[in-house]
Amino acid sequence: MLSVNHVTKKYGKFTALEDITLEFGSGVYALLAPNGAGKTTLIKMLTTLIFPTSGEILWNGDEIVKLDEEYRAVVGYLPQDFGYYRNHSPRDFLLYLSALKGLDRVAAGRKTDELLELVSLGEARDKKMRKFSGGMIQRVGIAQAMLNDPEILILDEPTAGLDPKERVRFRNLISSLSKDRIVILSTHIVSDIETIASRVVMFKGHKLLCDDSPASVCAALAGKVYETDDIAAVKEPCLTLTERQEDGRTVTRFASERDCAGAARKVSPNLEDVFLYIYRDEAI
């Protein structure tokens, strides 16, 4: 169990995160918030790159900083800007990182081949990475994070720069990896986590806003989301969420605190609606 207890992180007078308390068990945890909300700060604290100004982060009851390499041995991390060696093959690269992660050579060779197959890079394993697409590099990133078979897998904005097909492939991969381990995934792209997250953690104003299942998060907006192809007919105050084209008509999805059932059709809220509603005042 990974516990974040009353953690605050300050940089001088700026408070990046304030009094955050969270508990992580097995499953996929999505840190969903706009850029600058503190997701990466939390992730960097969970990976011991930075330390809380106050509060504590515990792994099975022990402070992660004190556990030192014992903690790092159970963590797999994919940073937001994943650097790689352009002139090396993914196999060489993974063997190198296996050594840094303390795997012996035989185990490293076996694990590297196994993971490259898992991320569908088996055939490209000896090719130089300079020829790889963004999606392929990201898959190498996932593979390196899995080398030590981590109990905690931390992925910071893992789908940034991926095309839609790669995103789907990535989601499926994360879903398959999430059994019996903690997967913490930071994103501001709702579709990345809608189907795979067991819990959604949202921040607002550098504080924890919610930590709940996607269904419960969506329930917060139940009865307030509508769709109409004639938004002009809606006289109640409302917040436009999305617009889409359907049979030549513009269908507007909106949220309103008032009853708009006369002018629009009530629909079930999804995570994207909640996200847009909560962060309506912030640049996303």
């Binding site: 963590v75 650097g83 840094l100 992660k101």
Partner: peptide, 10 residues
């Protein structure tokens, strides 16, 4: 890769 390498065991 510096940041990633700071999170490895060694």
């Amino acid at each position: 890769l510096y940041e990633l390498k700071l999170t490895c065991r060694y």
